[in-house]
């Protein structure tokens, strides 16, 4: 069984469950992924599927990429990705497509994506430090505070939490619930938020 798919974040809204409660959901468009190559443990060292997804203007695709699709006589897609398999799948051949039917409402999944970039952020936002006093003569409003010791070791320890670039990194949320799967629109509704902007590529995988 293939238990993962790539999709695109569309946006958030709220929908109603059967019991009448409204739930906050993120809509993810997951169109069928085309299998380009089946990787196996003898040749590649691990079992995986190389898949392609997303619409693209054919004129903008370069020849090496186009060649991969021509080899299996498939329509050219924009993005490529890999789906790791727990065990080898004999029945899947290049040219097959993976559809969102693998998911159903109520499934627990993990969602990965690249989070929104936050720019150069201070320690309060980046590492959840506490802030200093805002008044009573304190000038230490949002500063990091002491960063090291004295003449020994006379340096700052590696990995010290400091201000810096935040966000725009791969984030995985485990245990998200699927609220609904709308097959005719290729949409998956995931309860709660999902990393990244609208239009961001996300990877959905079943948890077991």
């Amino acid at each position: 069984m293939v238990e993962a798919i790539y999709g695109e974040k569309i946006g958030t809204t709220q929908v109603f469950k059967d019991d009448g409660n409204a739930v906050y959901v993120t809509a993810i468009k997951a169109e069928p992924c085309i299998v380009l190559q089946v990787k196996n443990s003898q040749q590649d060292g691990y079992d995986a599927l190389k898949v392609a997804f997303g619409d693209v203007d054919k004129k903008k695709v370069n020849k090496p990429k186009k060649g991969e699709f021509d080899k299996i006589k498939a329509e050219i897609k924009k993005n490529m990705g890999e789906i790791r398999l727990k065990e080898p799948q004999e029945e899947i051949k290049p040219g097959d497509s993976i559809e969102l039917k693998i998911f159903k409402a109520g499934d627990k999944i993990k969602v990965s994506g690249i989070s929104k970039g936050k720019g150069f952020a201070g320690v309060i936002k980046r590492h959840n430090f506490h802030r200093g006093r805002m008044s009573h003569g304190s000038h230490a409003h949002r500063i990091p505070g002491a960063v090291g010791m004295c003449a020994t070791p006379a340096r700052i320890l590696k990995g010290k939490k400091m201000p810096g670039r935040m966000g725009h990194e791969m984030v995985t949320i485990k245990g998200s619930e699927i609220v609904d799967v709308i097959e005719d629109q290729n949409l998956i509704l995931v309860k709660g938020s999902v990393p990244g902007n609208k239009g961001n590529i996300v990877y959905l995988e079943k948890l077991n």
């Binding site: 946006g11 809204t13 709308i182």
Partner: peptide
């Protein structure tokens, strides 16, 4: 747009 179409199902 896609979200409006999705909401229609629940309206």
């Amino acid at each position: 747009n896609t979200l409006d179409k999705l909401e229609n199902k629940y309206m």
